[in-house]
Nucleic acid binder design. Structure first.
Length: 262
DNA sequence: ATGTCGATACTTTATCGA
């Protein structure tokens, strides 16, 4: 079972690239973020042609998340619990019905939070607290779970090209990192970090100032695995290739492979 | 020296968000 996460920065602008990568990498499940369109306008048939089922949560212009799965998607939850007044499309969850390899997945687009002296930062921190509460509730079900997405969190200084320069950014601030660590402390595993010791491995490079060419990047796209999923973790990596394609997203896919059973 | 991208609207350029 191969599961990938990718912030595509508009599913319409990225249609050809996403279809090409799905054809190359052939993930069973793809968790997409920043689709930037309402669910009714999501180009579903373009992915159904490739053998994927879809679950989509969208809004006009901003945000938007989706799950693509070769297996049926059941038990869909299309908003993060904990704030009925929050109408930003940043969370979708579902059960991937793959028999013994079945797994619960969530596609997460965590708020950026900049600038930190605006209401955006407390919104980010509150959103992370809500995610923690929901992640805790999921653990009680003792299922394999992958919470994947654009976390807008640089977990440690080795995950950003210029730690000092980014120290006060919403992606690096101590309050942000503390909440990410809290997710780990609940019992979730950062799949990439579990299998790779080295720093300097990034999933995002800004469009500006030739950041990709200079490898000035950040690791902010993560796959967090419940114990039942982590016990089945066989491989995880970042695929930088799509970031170098024409009309690239500013993020690149991160994927992992789980065995069918332990 | 400067060099971004995508969506939107009282659109063809400015604004917002990232």
């Amino acid at each position: 079972m191969k599961i990938a996460t990718w912030n595509v920065n508009s599913i319409k602008a990225r249609l050809a690239n996403v279809r090409a990568w799905l054809g190359d990498a052939v993930p069973d499940v793809a968790l997409l973020q920043e689709t930037k369109t309402v669910a009714e306008a999501f180009p579903a048939s373009e992915f159904e042609e490739l053998g994927y089922n879809l679950a989509v949560a969208g809004q006009k212009s901003y945000n938007g998340v989706a799950i693509l799965s070769k297996h049926p998607i059941e038990d869909v939850v299309d908003r993060l619990p904990g704030d009925e007044g929050d109408d930003q499309a940043r969370y979708i969850e579902g059960w991937i019905d793959a028999g013994a390899a079945g797994i619960r997945v969530a596609s997460i687009y965590l708020p950026n939070g900049n600038p930190t002296d605006s209401p955006k930062y407390p919104y980010k921190l509150a959103w992370m607290d809500r995610l923690g509460a929901h992640a805790r509730a999921l653990l009680a079900q003792e299922e394999p779970v992958i919470l994947g997405g654009d976390y807008n969190v640089v977990p440690a200084d080795g995950d950003v090209y210029d730690p000092a320069g980014w120290a006060d950014d919403a992606l690096c601030r101590p309050e942000t990192r503390a909440r990410f660590r809290a997710l780990v402390h609940l019992g979730y595993t950062d799949a990439f970090r579990a299998l790779h010791r080295e720093g300097g491995r990034y999933s995002f490079w800004d469009y500006q100032r030739r950041a990709f060419e200079a490898d000035r990047g950040l690791r902010i796209d993560h796959l967090l695995l419940s114990p039942q999923a982590a016990d089945r973790l066989e491989a995880c990596d970042i695929d930088p290739v799509p970031r170098g394609w024409a009309k690239a997203s500013d993020h690149t896919p991160v994927w992992c492979v789980l065995s069918a059973q332990i």
